[in-house]
């Protein structure tokens, strides 16, 4: 999968304007059929469906994203496990993020590749893993939360120290007076 070329194609493709769930499911299921495998059955889609799948289906029908996927998908791939892994990996992402942000688009493509074991052109598996770790927005959100907590606790400690210093000064003044 040539990530750089795909991102360029996505940027140049017709903009996403929504896609009916049934059509999106059909497009994604076709990827598995073309690879000689078995698509995710309809009942499973009830639990696995996410709105971002419609964006992926749009890309599959307007760019070489679908073709890149089919070329490497194994016939024996278990779609339910793959979608479960993919959905968990992209839980921090949503339609708005991936449509507005090039890094989150790259991230979702890489999560897709990782979920199905697709190789990224021009990268070793270790390089692909490292790049995905850098982009992973779940990690970013955890870091945002940690940084905010750290700032709040430092601020609380600073205010407590100021209050203690002020109290000590007032106590000393009281002694002098």
């Amino acid at each position: 999968m040539n990530i750089k070329a795909l991102l360029a194609e996505i940027a140049a493709a017709p903009p996403y304007a929504g896609l009916d769930r049934a059509i999106a499911v059909a497009i994604l299921n076709d990827l598995f059929r073309k690879a000689g495998g078995t698509p995710l059955p309809d009942p499973a889609w009830d639990t696995q469906w996410r709105a971002i799948h419609a964006v992926l289906a749009h890309w599959a029908s307007t760019t070489r994203f679908g073709e890149s996927t089919v070329q490497q998908l194994r016939r024996t791939q278990k779609p339910e496990a793959g979608y479960r892994a993919f959905n968990e990996a992209v839980e921090a992402l949503n339609e708005e993020l991936i449509l507005s942000n090039a890094f989150r688009r790259e991230e979702i493509l890489r999560h897709w590749a990782a979920a199905w074991g697709l190789a990224i052109e021009g990268e070793t598996p270790a390089e692909s893993k490292k790049r995905l770790e850098t982009l992973d927005y779940r990690r970013t959100l955890k870091e945002f939360a940690r940084a905010e907590e750290s700032r709040k606790s430092e601020e609380a400690a600073r205010l407590a120290a100021l209050a203690a210093a002020q109290a000590a000064e007032e106590a000393a003044r009281g002694w002098r007076e």
């Binding site: 507005s100 942000n101 850098t134 982009l135 927005y137 940084a147 700032r151």
Partner: peptide, 20 residues
């Protein structure tokens, strides 16, 4: 960037991470 409150807020609003 990770420790600047304003920049973190700004980047978060854009769906960006300093590590991007």
């Amino acid at each position: 960037l990770w420790t600047s409150p304003h920049m973190i807020s700004r980047l978060r609003a854009c769906g960006l991470s300093p590590d991007d």
